[in-house]
Design a protein around this nucleic acid. Structure first.
Lengths: 303, 303
DNA sequence: ACGATCGATGAGCTAGGCTCATCGATGAGG
DNA sequence: CCTCATCGATGAGCCTAGCTCATCGATCGT
């Protein structure tokens, strides 16, 4: 089969409305003879008379009317889709933005997303990404961006916005020696068995989450690894293991058999950020980053 | 806005499946460079990168994937509609055939329509046409054909099939002098007041339905006119008026306050036929006529 | 380092898309 | 009945857009 005769269809649709070759030509911005040729060509292609025409009257054949009734909506839809795409491209956005989160989304982000959807007329799909593989979903293109733990040191990824650093908390079981402490100093981490993340995260990221040693140089043990936050908490609850977390995750995962103790003296404190693939930077994502910045500023000023 | 870029869209859709410019070109039956140009043109038109391509890898942009997801179905639908129209034209038919009836449809026709729908994969819409204007709906194109009382003497109309002639019946009120008669001779019509049809029917047709005089030359009175069969029967029931009908209509409109008496000696007996606009003759309508002929033959042999 | 593969690009050809001029048909008006 | 005006069809011819060919540069495997 050969090519879709877009011009001929367009011509027929206009002619069906005008029922006049001259006016149709004017509306199409071409000559009357071209209209005549286009209609004839379409009729030849379809293999049936579509328009009954004398020098005094133009009317659709019964078959032509039926054809117009079917082709019209289909054609208009296609034109519409292309037009919408153009419009979206002009504003530099996607119709559906997929955002990944480690764990779940938190308040500041939710509000930013609401404004984002409104302003960009975009639908937002929220997905959870594995705690231990914060970047792979972004790199694979499964999500368009993600709010994850920093740091990110990867040419392929861009950090659009970084939330302010936050203290880390140490999650321990209810029976753990630290369970009732007010604080834990970072040097004390040398005495616990920290849970590491298993996943496709790069080494520098893993090291940032679970430092291999205290600032003073004491080695930090780590004999267990988990893929998700929930796994980690479950492991903590029933063992001597401990888990380093940042506050937003804690707020979303309170449970009775786990205690959260602030850790003081941590140099590399926990920090969340919005990241996306550098080669897929768009105005839309940058706008989302700006919205996050605003919400973050608002939250820190009122809180 | 300018023309719908059908080739470019087609090209993108194929490329989205192949992810390879050379194979895409082969499938489109053009050169690789053309594919490159088409994609570039579409990207320029939309205003966004749709395909990420290096010399070693081709993949859709996030935006491109979204675009393909929307444009693909719309495009396929349009192609499908055009293809279906071609197919229908090849078999010479309409997707929806509208048939008009005076009064209602009767058994032989119903069965023929069933087979017609099946064979032509067509939907059939049945419409009632005014008894007194059997042709105008056909001429106006409101229906594609109609089963109506003959005769038809009009260049613009074609009779595809004529049912065998049938006796006429005289409908009279229950209190009418003829109400209990076995037969009525045509000469006796001079003594009744026949109801005429009012409508856009031509004079020859009206005269055939309600003859102006008996064969022997006696004038037949007609002081009332009705537009539909039901109106006529209602008028008959409460007056001295009488109505000439053909059998199929009678079978469908039995009522207690009206008697039907066969009329003998009528030269021009009642005859139904399938008519359509001559300038809209199609193989499909001719096929329907053939089906009616078959059903009619079957009915007369078994009955 | 080399060759193979693949997409981009520019030059150049040509068929298809379009216009112009004209014709014949049709209907209105005198 | 004749004339004029309107409208769609048609053929000749022009020109652009649609396409090919040849070539280049980038990239990956060996």
């Amino acid at each position: 089969m050969d090519q879709l005769p877009a011009r001929e269809i367009e011509c027929l649709l206009v002619l069906a409305g005008e029922l006049h070759f001259g006016r149709t030509a004017a509306r199409l911005g071409c000559s009357q003879s071209r209209v005549s040729q286009l209609v004839a060509a379409l009729e030849r292609r379809i293999g049936a008379k579509l328009v009954e025409r004398t020098s005094r009257r133009v009317e659709l054949t019964r078959f032509g009317a039926e054809f117009v009734g079917e082709v019209g909506p289909a054609y208009q839809r296609l034109v519409g889709v292309v037009g919408q795409a153009r419009e979206r491209a002009r504003r530099g956005g996607l119709a559906e933005v997929r955002i990944g989160f480690q764990g779940t989304a938190y308040e500041e982000v939710i509000e930013a997303l609401r404004r984002f959807k409104l302003h960009c007329q975009t639908s937002v799909v929220v997905t959870e990404v594995p705690y231990g593989s914060p970047f792979s979903a972004v790199l694979d293109g499964v999500v368009d961006c993600a709010v994850v733990e920093l740091p990110v040191r990867d040419e392929r990824l861009t950090v659009g916005f970084s939330f302010p650093p936050q203290d880390r908390l140490l999650a321990v079981g209810a029976e753990h020696p630290f369970a009732r402490r007010e604080r834990v100093d970072i040097e004390e981490l040398a005495s616990v068995d920290l849970i590491a993340s298993t996943g496709e995260a790069p080494g520098y990221w893993l090291a940032a989450q679970v430092p291999p040693a205290t600032p003073a140089g004491s080695e930090i043990r780590s004999t267990a690894g988990v893929a998700t936050l929930q796994e980690g908490l479950t492991l903590v609850a029933g063992s001597e293991h401990a888990l380093l977390l940042c506050r937003p995750f804690v707020e979303r995962s309170r449970r009775g058999d786990v205690r959260y103790v602030p850790v003081s003296g941590m140099e590399a404190s926990s920090q969340l950020g919005l990241v996306w693939r550098t080669d897929r930077t768009t105005a839309q994502l940058e706008y989302l980053a700006r919205l996050l910045a605003e919400e973050s500023a608002r939250a820190s000023s009122t809180g």
